[in-house]
Design a protein around this nucleic acid. Sequence first.
DNA 1: CACAAAAGAGAGCAGTGCTCTTGACAATGG
DNA 2: CCATTGTCAAGAGCACTGCTCTCTTTTGTG
Lengths: 228, 228
Amino acid sequence: MPESTVTKPAQGYRARVRAELTAEIKAAATRQLEAEGATSLSLRAIAREMGMASSAIYRYFPSRDELFTALIIDAYNDVGDRVEAADAACAPTNYHDRFLGVAKAIRQFALDSPHQYALIYGSPIPGYKAPQDTIDPAVRVPVCLMTILVDAKPKGGKSKKLDQAMAGLMDFTGHSITPVALARGVQAWGEIMGLISLEMFGHFENAISDPAVLFDHAMGELADRVVQ
Amino acid sequence: MPESTVTKPAQGYRARVRAELTAEIKAAATRQLEAEGATSLSLRAIAREMGMASSAIYRYFPSRDELFTALIIDAYNDVGDRVEAADAACAPTNYHDRFLGVAKAIRQFALDSPHQYALIYGSPIPGYKAPQDTIDPAVRVPVCLMTILVDAKPKGGKSKKLDQAMAGLMDFTGHSITPVALARGVQAWGEIMGLISLEMFGHFENAISDPAVLFDHAMGELADRVVQ
DNA sequence: CACAAAAGAGAGCAGTGCTCTTGACAATGG
DNA sequence: CCATTGTCAAGAGCACTGCTCTCTTTTGTG
């Protein structure tokens, strides 16, 4: 939570206690999220667990949605950290390994924190509109993926239609990559997220008994195709 | 005429009214689902809309989850119908067109019924366990996709690990296709669902302004790769 | 027609997010 | 040193939710 830096510069005892309590509420919420899922996350239950009145929670989070926002940002940052760490652990020019590492990091995040994964990559919570603060953490994963792609300098044709259909992405890459190659990167992103989501949300039931084997095979094939 | 009066007889007036009311409740629920999303679907609101007591709904659906199950089955059958129709509209040996038609049918379903799409392909509702009745409608889409793949008789290597990782799927295809080729089909399924989900759940915001162009391009490229 | 089965209505329980008011406390200015 | 000010927690209460139970009405059929 970004604490208001505009208030008294003192940052005394009071501010510290407030920050600690805010963190504790978020921790309790995370615990509940992991145990029960997003929709059954209850402010009253959090208050109960913390031994305080439910109304007191509102001193720290003005609404349930604000708490959700905090959890969503945390989740995005969690997977972002993992992905960037996996990327950094590889030799910068070994695009194949970087791609593989990133893909596996995303899946591992999903396996470790299924509810967090569902929170950010599943159906959006109805009535909840993601505020601006979430987009910076949210783009970390695709940015990492696209950076690897750009670094690999892949071949690919031009396409005016594709170019303007992906205008935002093209701007981000500084037009240092052709639209067709960039589209291949988005496709790869889609395949990664699609395979993980199908697995996490139960669509592999009775069909694929060992999703890890399939995923690793698919990512190897995908990396061959997309980078180098 | 043999009169078996003991079992459910003739299905007279009463049974018809019951079937009609059940359908009407489901219709009202669908309307609410489309307007507000799954989590804010309220039995009391449905009862209010129909001008009956909330408790009366329970004569038709024993619980909210049962209503959800009905809606989920409907959604699966909706997309299943579309997909099978799109497939049947193509020349059976034109695998490229069949694949493209199926992929576009899934995306069109998502665009037409975003909440239904989220219901079946988004995060599962916590605490809700899909009963057996949902799996038959659920597999219609992947079955259609895999059937096209098998028909296309694609090349591909063997892999014992992959073979047993996808044992269920291999059985379904009658082992008439190699594991590597089948995996390619699952990857294609993943890419289709991944791209649609990323689009539907807002992850293309500010990056891809015209998802239709990207999707069509991706599917063309994908079809080239997977069939024929 | 009589009667059992089916359907509807209403009250009630435990839970939810959220608001408003009230009282307690700590930090600070005169 | 006391009074003011801002912060915090608590409690009651509102409008909801899913669901159960009981009671009454309706209705098809032997």
